[in-house]
Amino acid sequence: MADILRTALYLFISVFVILNYGLLLNGLVRKIVARAHGRVGPPIWQPWLDILKTYAKRSAISHGVMFFLGPIFRLAGGLGTYLFIPAIYGSVMFANLSFSGDLLLVMYFIFFGQLGMALGAGEGGHPNSAIAVGRGLSQMTSFELPFALSVIALAIQYHSLSITEIVAAQQGGILNWTIFTNPLATFAGLFALLGMNMHSPFDIVLAPQEVPIGPPTEMQSSFLGILQTNRAIFLSAKLVLFMNLYLGGATNIFAMMLKTFMLYMLSVVVGVSFPRFRTEQSIRFFLGVPTLLGLAAVIIFML
């Protein structure tokens, strides 16, 4: 019993830290993008204000059961992704539930939230939601291919699908990181990360000026609040996952923050440099070079 309570407490702390870290990343990135535009930009604490304001709305409209469940599935997807990844290698508090699930479960959770959200957004009935859900699912399917190939290459390389074991195998020096031992799989994975983070040129789902905000068009008040919470958790969860897979994990929280920040900067730099793809261009892109890189990585390690 005491074990369960302690695990629950650690999970709570871990999720709390990662939520705030995700919001901090969002705030920082808004500031950085604003600077790239030559603006002052919103204060760094703006995401906290936004999330508080959204939860503090006095009224909310629901369009049905699935509409209700959509944001909850999305949050479950984000939490599930995070909770089955060890955030800090060797730390009891930030190991989360990493011993209970492997990489395939995490990949499933990455997909799960988006499918749940697709159903919820569909019930909202707004045409922009439906268009953006179609775009999102097709893009997701296409970037899942290089990501899956990259994961398969890692599984062959490390003879394991457990994230903890993959991180353990990368300890002992910077040259043991996957980015140096298996650069092809890393680049395939990083291309998939660009798609997952949905910054420009892959922001075809939220696509401002096109399908103004995409799936959450009808989501308001606490529905949107849950989505914003999830956005912060899910973002950091993905970054932590990629850090574990390719950059040797982290042994303390500062290394974790530094590495995930650098990983996120990749998306941000690409985002402020390139205009948006159209849906079919984005899909073609992922099925081209990233998939070939992933295939090459798998073939090399199978030989």
Partner: peptide, 15 residues
């Protein structure tokens, strides 16, 4: 730059 005052455009009346 209205963003520095915490003002941001939103494409839907719901939000």
């Amino acid at each position: 730059d209205m963003y520095r005052y915490g003002i941001a455009p939103r494409p839907t009346p719901r939000q």
